[in-house]
Design a protein around this nucleic acid. Structure first.
Lengths: 233, 233
DNA sequence: GTTTAATATTGACATATATCAACAATAAGT
DNA sequence: ACTTATTGTTGATATATGTCAATATTAAAC
């Protein structure tokens, strides 16, 4: 069975969660033995908002979106996630349910690790728990920034921010293929898909960003950063 | 000196942070010995956004606002805090600075506990660290809900939500004195102060909430809940 | 490759919400 | 009690943004 696994072991995994370094050999072995792999196709749901949360999820390959489902099928994309990230919603320690959904954007390989084991390790290994605290803090900090960005910036600023995120964090290049649809880009920047189209056209006519379908090219990055930072409410 | 302290000891404190229960007697004594008290008048700043963070703050009395300062002196109130709460911004574990400001709304008594001691305790006591994780999760969860509320609800829904918060969480009564100014209420619900006034008037004319200056009275709570929950974007 | 479905684009329009300016009411300082 | 500063209120207006409907384009299915 082990030979079927895509990731041989946590010890040798090149995209393992940073905090696993704080585990002892035997603790890491425990994790590795209780690890379940699954592969998802684009669009498939990995975690469903509202369902009981039993595992922490780690992507070993691919990209996924964390989003909140509203009534009237309007979603709100909280985050785009890639390998090395631990994914556990804050709801887990509140009411043991997923407070958001997670869906694959590309083909995604995942590892599931039971929260029971996770909690056990945190309670017996304080360094590991401390690493978890740091991880949660980084996420909280990012969420706080998202909150500020969504309440303060207007549409051009929010779109500029999203483009910069995909260029710098996801693609490490100023020319890239946008993986999100206009609809999803709207769900991420909190606006209607039509508005996304219009803002992109504005950015194009002012020579800041060229966009042709999913192809995006940043022409004037400084200006784009300005728009992201200074177009306030 | 001890006799000057408003709170005799952490062990007997009636509004101590829940997670202190996970400390041993000697650990709690360590906390108690390294605790500094300070009293603030309304309007005074307790923590300043951007300044180095050296302590966790606990209110033993009074009420305060956590807010983010923007350029152009537009603030955004993240949270209203009361005793029993631990206050440490997520920035602390990211870049050791306060990611928000904290200011007194009433006369406020506080305890400051050094983060060094705090981190030491987390690293040596996994149960304490786990309690911290639960605490951070609850806050993250609340922030996620705030994010959803601000992006999805429109003004009446956001004001309704704020009123319900003050009635249920702060005052435990449907008739109360609003501690925030209209301006601050706007900073909390992300709208202009003029809009706050208008929405309050609308609520009054539809017989849901009566407001006269700082006096607020909920007349039809069910309807108010409806407005808070179903007036979406 | 043709049909079908999904997504993107565009323009016209409706609406939510901010801004500005004037004034009223309250609170604070002397 | 009087003056001053702050906060609250109102109406008029500007702006940002969403909605709807029609069409164009692209991707998916057969």
């Amino acid at each position: 069975m082990d030979s079927e696994r895509l990731i041989k072991s946590c010890e040798t995994c090149t995209v393992a969660w940073k905090n696993f370094k704080n585990l002892s050999k035997s603790e890491l072995r425990l994790v590795n033995e209780n690890r379940y792999e699954a592969t998802f196709k684009p669009g498939e749901i990995i975690l469903k908002q509202g369902s009981p949360a039993s595992s922490a999820v780690f992507l070993s390959k691919g990209m996924a979106k964390i989003y909140i489902e509203g009534r009237d099928r309007k979603n709100f994309i909280l985050e785009i996630v890639m390998p090395s990230r631990m994914i556990v919603g804050p709801g887990v320690h509140v009411h043991a349910c997923n407070s958001y959904s997670l869906a694959a954007l590309t083909i995604v390989q995942t590892c599931f690790i039971s929260l029971e084991i996770f909690n056990q390790l945190m309670k017996q290994n304080a360094e590991f728990a401390f690493g978890m605290i740091e991880d949660l803090s980084v996420k909280s900090y990012a969420m706080q920034n998202k909150l500020v960005s969504l309440t303060r910036k207007k549409m051009p600023g929010r779109i500029a921010e999203a483009i910069l995120f995909f260029a710098d964090e996801v693609n490490q290049s100023d020319v890239f293929d946008m993986i999100l649809s206009r609809q999803e880009l709207g769900e991420m920047a909190n606006m209607a898909k039509e508005s996304v189209v219009r803002i992109l056209k504005e950015l194009e006519s002012s020579g800041v960003v060229k966009s042709d379908g999913s192809k995006i090219q940043i022409l004037d990055k400084e200006k784009l950063k300005m728009i992201s930072e200074f177009i306030l409410h």
